[in-house]
Write a protein that binds this DNA or RNA. Structure first.
Lengths: 117, 117
DNA sequence: CAATTACTTAACACATTCGTTAAGTATATT
DNA sequence: AATATACTTAACGAATGTGTTAAGTAATTG
């Protein structure tokens, strides 16, 4: 599930597209015009980003022929922020375990001066 | 530069390795034992993670033959956190631009009731 | 309804990547 | 010096991913 997000942001051009969308909504054509690769290439990047739910798509323009993309900031923050935060949670837990271990070791010492025999 | 980090975390197995290291320092062999792929495969993942500076390596063990890896939490937070935060900065800037635009538009309205003619 | 606009999907080439096994390297140990 | 331990690097195959051009498709316009 999160996998799609990590795959999506792994590629530089897709990160560039996200960056561009950071400045505001853009159509598929506008995005393609910003880069020196073909429109189909951009279209596929957009599909991936859409599947990862990093961008939202809606019909737009004066007639409904354009596809407008917007950055999904919440998704970006939730997935990446959440993932990074999980490490700090683990860290806290590890520290906690270590603390308990040290405490029980010192309790052992109180009961006997050489518990290993 | 940041590129290596995004590439490194793109792969599920490497994210699993980072997660494992989140619980504390581990040797190359210990890490390999945790997964059902060969040691060489793990070794290459570790090299990528090291190149991305997401993990640090040092000699360890009773003799100096083991290679111990630790997670570099700061790097993770700085790169990903920084990248995500940049979007919010852009967002703030875009909002600000929009505000200025609206303000100048309303100033135009004050000067003339139909500026488009 | 034929043409136009704004895209997307398909087909294919080339590059990169992950895994495997076999071979190499570095640091003790005997 | 030979052997063992703990890895890493090399070589290679199968899968995946990015780009290109050509061929759709969906909605609007004349």
């Amino acid at each position: 599930m999160y996998d799609a997000v990590f795959t999506a942001i792994a590629e530089g051009r897709r990160r560039d597209i996200l960056k561009l969308l950071g400045k505001g909504e853009k159509s598929s054509g506008e995005i393609a015009a910003h880069f020196d690769v073909s429109w189909p290439a951009i279209s596929r990047h957009l599909r991936l980003l859409k599947e990862a739910k990093l961008v939202d798509e809606r019909r737009g323009g004066r007639d409904g022929r354009e596809r407008h993309y917007t950055l999904n900031r919440a998704r970006l923050r939730n997935v990446l922020g959440g993932w990074v935060a999980a490490f700090d949670a683990m860290w806290a837990e590890s520290l906690d375990n270590l603390k308990h271990e040290l405490e029980s070791t010192s309790r052992d010492k109180e009961r006997s001066h050489d518990p290993r025999r």
